[in-house]
Design a protein around this nucleic acid. Structure first.
Lengths: 186, 186
DNA sequence: CTTTGCTCTTGAATGACATACAAGAAAACC
DNA sequence: GGTTTTCTTGTATGTCATTCAAGAGCAAAG
């Protein structure tokens, strides 16, 4: 009973390793050249494989993007514990710093929502996750659930807005300051 | 001195008429099929012309999009006077209703910011215009300039967030209510 | 009336792109 | 060692935005 499953596991591991390699390269290119600016051809060339090889691992470029997004998010999750007990304002500033490198991908995800089922699923799941986390935080600060849900949405929109639009450090500071003190009056 | 300029005017008028026809068709298709979902070929077919004819009027698909955006905006500007003296909350609700049809184009604009110079210029100009208008409104309500600028940015981000993400009527109501009463304490 | 020049349209091509298909190489399994 | 399964590739397809050079229509100039 050992061999069959064991061998299968080994294969699965190799698969994950290879996928990780692909996603690492794709991630680097997506972040530097943008999603549209990065062709499957280019990714394959960078990896030293034929372009259609990628399609054995991912059904489409969008699915590859989802892989890259999950990769980014899991890296962010590793750093999450460092700020769990900081105040709301610092949490938001941290989130902004985290996603700033992926700024372009955030816009890409929103633009592809209507055209790609997989992207839409990932996006919805991501938002559910983030909102749940923020709501939890706010409730811990004594905010009622209904209100916490609304404020979580607002906070998310503000972070997305700041990511999408260039702004000065003082602008960011002013917005976060105003939001957090309006949301959590002392 | 009459003939030369007169003839030239006539031509210019024809040009505008033709552009308006193009933009009307392009607008309809962009709104129903999305920017990426609408090929230049498709637009041309709908108009009964050869695809490359469009390139006599616009240097690129992005410039055609800019034409469509300006068209939409000028239609919105016509309706602007109907709400100038309404309270902030109603103004925001009106803006949401105005841009709701163009929801998909808003996402497209943001996604193409990095790739298209013309789109970026249009986007920046649009934001400058909107923010100036909102700041003016807030100042009229007695908000200090610095603070009005910050609130205008926040308001813009909220509208964009609501446009980009599906939500219920009560969610929208709650967010606008909270924002306006936090921004303008009675 | 004819020639010249301008505005507009088109046929045909180009190169990039995401992706499909079927055949082959390599490795795992029996 | 032969068979099946996993992975890779060569080759092709269809779509797309865009280009280019050649033309048609028409106004102005001679």
């Amino acid at each position: 009973m050992g061999e069959g499953p064991l061998a299968k596991n080994k294969r699965d591991i190799d698969l994950k390793v290879k996928q990780d390699e692909l996603e690492s390269t794709a991630s680097r290119l997506f972040l530097s050249l943008g999603y549209d600016g990065t062709s499957m051809n280019r990714i394959a060339r960078e990896l030293g494989v034929a372009p259609n090889t990628l399609y054995w691992y991912y059904a489409s470029k969008d699915e590859l993007l989802v892989g890259v997004l999950n990769r980014q998010m899991s890296q962010t999750l590793v750093r999450l514990p460092t700020i769990v007990d900081k105040p709301l304002k610092e949490k938001m500033a941290w989130a902004l710093r985290e996603f700033e490198q992926s700024r372009e991908l955030v816009a890409t995800v929103h633009a592809r929502l209507e055209q790609s089922e997989v992207i839409r699923e990932w996006h919805d799941q991501f938002h559910r996750f983030v909102e749940a986390a923020v709501i939890h935080t706010l409730q811990a600060d004594g905010v009622a659930r209904e209100r916490a849900a609304m404020l979580a949405t607002v906070g998310t929109f503000l972070v997305e807005g700041l990511l999408a639009h260039p702004h000065s450090e003082s602008q960011r500071e002013a917005i976060l300051q105003w939001f957090t003190e309006s949301a959590l009056p002392a």
